[in-house]
Amino acid sequence: MDKENRAWQWASHTIMIALSLLCVLPFILLFMASITDEKAIVSEGYSFFPTQFSFQAYKYLWMQADQILRAYGITVIVTVIGTACSLFITSLLAYPLSRKDMPGGQAIAFIVFFTMLFNGGLVPTYMVYTQLLDVKNTLFALIVPWLLMNGFNVLLMRTFFKTTIPVAVLESASIDGAGEFKTYFRIVMPLSLPILATVGMFQGLAYWNDWNNGLVFVTKPHLFSLQNMLNRIMSDIQFLSANSNGSVSESLSQMPSETFRMAIAVIGVVPILAAYPFFQKYFVKGMTIGAVKG
C-alpha cells in the first residue's frame, strides 16, 4: 500500500512540475522582455538571457505613476464590489434551483441555461444599459453588464449543492422550524465554501481582467481600469501601424515601444500573482472545511 502511494506521489509531482514549468517560463520571458533594451529586442528577438538590459520602460511608467495608480484603484474597487455582489446573487439563485422539491425548478434552470446559448449581442445589450439604465461613464458600467452573474456559475453552484448537500440535513433543519433563509445562511453557506471560493475566484479574475465593459461604456479617462489602459494602448498601436501613411506615422512614433507594452503587461499581472496566494489560502481552507464537514 505504502509503495503504491509513493509511486503515486512521485508521478504526480513529476507531472505537475513539468506542467508548472511550462506555464511559468513564458512569464519569465515576458518579464525579461520588459527589461531588455529596445534595440536588443529588435535585433536578437526575445531571450531569457538578453545581452543588454534597460529599465527605460519602467522609468517611463513611473513618470505616469498617478495615472497608473488611479487605474489600479478602479480595478481593485470593481473587483472587490463586483465579486461580492456576484457571489451573493449567484448563490441565491443557484440554491433554490438545486432543490428538487421546488416546483418550476427545471423550467427556471432552462431559462438560466438558455442565456448561455443566446445573447442579443453587443448592440442590443448596449442599448439596454445606456437607454434603460444610464450607466455610461459610471462605476456600475464596469460592474453590472455581462459580468455580474453568468449562467455557467449558477449551474456550477447548483450542481455542487445538488451533489454535496444531503437532503436529510435540509429536511431536519426544516423540521426544527428553520425558515428557508435561515437554512440557507446557517447551513447551506458554511457547507459550500469550496464552491463559493471557486466561483469567487472565477468572478474575481473576470473582473480583474475585464476590459470589454470599459471599452464599451467608459470614455472618461478617470474611470479607466488597468486592463483598459493596457488594451487601449495595444489597440491604438495596432490601429496606427495598420493605417500607416504619412499622417499617422507621427502619432505612431509617440506610442510606447514593445518593451513598454511588456512592462505594462507585467504590472498588470504582478498584483494578481501577489494576491493569489492569500486568495488561495482561503480557497484551500474553504475546500478543506467543505471536505471535513461534508
Binding site: 440554491y95 442565456t115 443566446f118 442579443g120 449581442g121 442590443p124 442599448m127 434603460l132
Partner: peptide, 29 residues
C-alpha cells in the same frame, strides 16, 4: 410554501431578464 425560495431567486432572475433576455430582441436586427 416555497415563496422564500422564489424570493431568493428574484435578484438573479431580474438580472438575467435585464442582461440577457431583453437584449435578445436585438436578434431581429
Amino acid at each position: 410554501r416555497y415563496w422564500p425560495l422564489y424570493l431568493m431567486m428574484l435578484p438573479g432572475l431580474a438580472y438575467m431578464v435585464l442582461n440577457n433576455y431583453l437584449p435578445m430582441f436585438g436578434l431581429s436586427i
